[in-house]
Amino acid sequence: MSTSIRAHHQKAIDRLVETYQNDTRFNALIIGGSVAKGCARDDSDVDFFIVANDNEFDKRKSEGDLFINRTDLCDYPGGFVDGKVVSYSYLQELANKGNEPSRAAFDGAFIAYSHLDGLSSMVQSIPVYQETGHKERLKAFYSMAFMQNWLMGEANRHDNIYTKSRAATQLAFYAGRLILAYNKVLYPYHKWLMHYLEKCPDKPDSVLENIKSVLNEPNLQNANRLFQSIQDFSDWGIPDHDAFLWFMEEVEWSWMNDNTALEDL
């Protein structure tokens, strides 16, 4: 549990507990988001997961009613609580085979109340980087960064503004994912990417500035500077030919293999 929770956020959490802990439809309340991570702003909302019993979850799922968004539990300007209804079996599956963004959603999460035995250890097992597939992810992210840098060259040659913008954002994204994976840090989805990169202990000195530069000014010089910084950071062991080949087989031919989209890993 974070020790830096603002008083008005804690008050909202207390009201959530008062509202739901005696409701037999809900077995537990888990606080997540920026409040749990200790980086909330004054006006941040309070994110949470509420664990419904199986009957309640199945009912809500069939009705498409899996969100709880309330302003009446907050007394600060613009405040609201924003929750997702989940089941215990969902948490079990997430701990077993969840993707990185779903795991990272539980980074720093803490239990506000629970009627479930073993929930604490379950929650702690979720935001854990998975060693299985680590080398493959490094190759994938490096190859994608390589290809986006190459694509920026093509966009520059044809003066294609759309491709420049696309290559810049994709290069920034995969350079970021490569460094996260190198540090064995979960990818927290786009909103938190730069924040998590800042916390990585091992990264090129200029990588954050280079990412910002290519996003602010999508051009070949900035793209080359960013890619060069990550290329020189480690001996990735991936020749240019292998990066091109990976892209052809895993991206251009992904439809042949029913592969999961790389951004969803």
Rank of each mutant, 00 (worst) to 15 (best):
N55G: 07
N257V: 03
Y182T: 11
S165L: 13
E250C: 10
L220N: 05
T260M: 09
S2G: 14
L16A: 06
G38S: 13
A223N: 02
A140V: 11
S87I: 07
K37D: 10
E136Q: 15
V51N: 05
D45C: 08
F227T: 00
D117M: 04
L215S: 00
M194Q: 11
E93H: 10
S206Y: 03
E136I: 07
E18D: 12
A155G: 15
D205S: 14
C200K: 05
D45S: 02
R6P: 00
F49R: 08
Q228N: 14
D159M: 11
G32A: 11
M194L: 15
E93Q: 12
I5C: 09
R103P: 04
L138A: 07
E217L: 13
E263Q: 11
C39W: 11
D242H: 01
Y90S: 01
S121E: 15
K139Q: 15
G79P: 07
E198I: 04
R177P: 00
S143I: 05
D202E: 15
L245V: 04
N55L: 13
L116K: 03
A105D: 11
G176C: 04
D82R: 05
T3D: 14
E209P: 00
K212Y: 06
K212V: 03
N99M: 05
K37F: 12
D82L: 03
M1S: 15
A40E: 15
Q130K: 15
G33I: 03
K139I: 14
P101S: 00
M248F: 13
H158W: 10
S229G: 06
I126S: 06
Q148D: 11
F80H: 11
D47F: 07
T169G: 09
V185W: 01
N96C: 05
P201D: 07
Y162T: 08
A104T: 00
N210Q: 05
L226V: 02
N96E: 14
A223S: 15
E63C: 08
D159V: 14
S44Y: 09
A52D: 05
H134C: 01
W236F: 10
I68C: 09
G237C: 04
D258L: 06
Q148V: 00
G108S: 08
H158L: 12
N183K: 01
V46A: 08
K199N: 08
F49Y: 13
V51T: 06
Y142G: 03
K199A: 15
A181K: 00
W255L: 07
F49I: 04
D42A: 13
E250T: 09
F80C: 10
Q130Y: 03
L116W: 05
E198C: 01
N160I: 08
H8A: 08
R103S: 09
Y187L: 01
L119M: 08
R166P: 00
D58I: 11
A243L: 01
P218Y: 02
I211G: 06
G237W: 12
D14N: 15
H190P: 04
L226S: 10
P127Q: 04
A7N: 09
Y113S: 02
G32Y: 02
S89P: 00
S143N: 09
E100C: 04
L197S: 03
D58F: 11
M144H: 14
K212C: 03
S2Q: 03
